[in-house]
Amino acid sequence: MNKHNQLDYLDELEAEAIHILREVAGQFERPALLFSGGKDSITLVRLAEKAFRPGKFPFPLVHIDTGHNFIETIEYRDAMVKRLGERLIVGNVQDSIDQGKVVEQKGKNASRNALQTVTLLDTIAEHKFDACIGGARRDEEKARSKERIFSVRDEFGQWDPKRQRPELWNIYNGKIHKGENVRVFPISNWTELDVWNYIRREKIELPSIYFAHERDTIVRNGQLMAASPVLNMDKDDIIERRTVRFRTVGDMTCTAAVASDAFLIDDIINEISESKISERGARMDDKVSEAAMEDRKKGGYF
């Protein structure tokens, strides 16, 4: 028997993700790709091109917009959708607020991050999505490290960690009852560094806020935040111009910047290789308690 070495790790991760995306296409009637504007979902879009071109994507892109996004993210999103010629559906948290389904938080630490879950579940219901593809990775956080690649959610979007389906080999069981849906994570097995190395290899363009730039910032709870009216700033918040970049792009109210001189992708890869802070360490929403993510997932969060 003639044996060769295994594929290079990026090729293997890529092939696994493409396989998962094609399983979604083959198994579901109304799938969607949740696009956040972050590097992970941008990577997913690239993988979808590899899985389905020259055909069209068998799903629309769905963006849950908190209304507090970085302007650079929205500009990137719109340009990308135009280039791809694919359909974009936007679910607005503002609409959920206007409809009285959620109440805007008050005070200095107010964030719309928690409110997105309601908008997400409403958007899923409105469009009857049976599968939502997301860019979550198992190395991000402890609860995520336990989640299946096809993760079944009940009618209320809830994840039940004690009753996960067995998931063997690369056979994914997407059978569900009406009302349930599946969250699918094609890049589960990628690390943050894998994503960056892939972005470099594939020469994928990213929103500019990932790279070092000058911006007005304030310090909140020991973290650097972009100065913005959405942060409910007051006179105690001292605005200072700093050279920073963002490691994740989420809602402006909960995404901290890091001081950085990484202007190019090579700089970023060096910075991450040497850095000793995990990516989610820059997310205030995970700091609340040891089980913050598990609790949010049980409630329908991505």
Binding site: K142, K146, P161, K162
Partner: peptide, 14 residues
Amino acid sequence: GLKAEREQGITIDV
């Protein structure tokens, strides 16, 4: 990683 696991000090899922 799961609450129940930390509470019981055992591993339930992969």
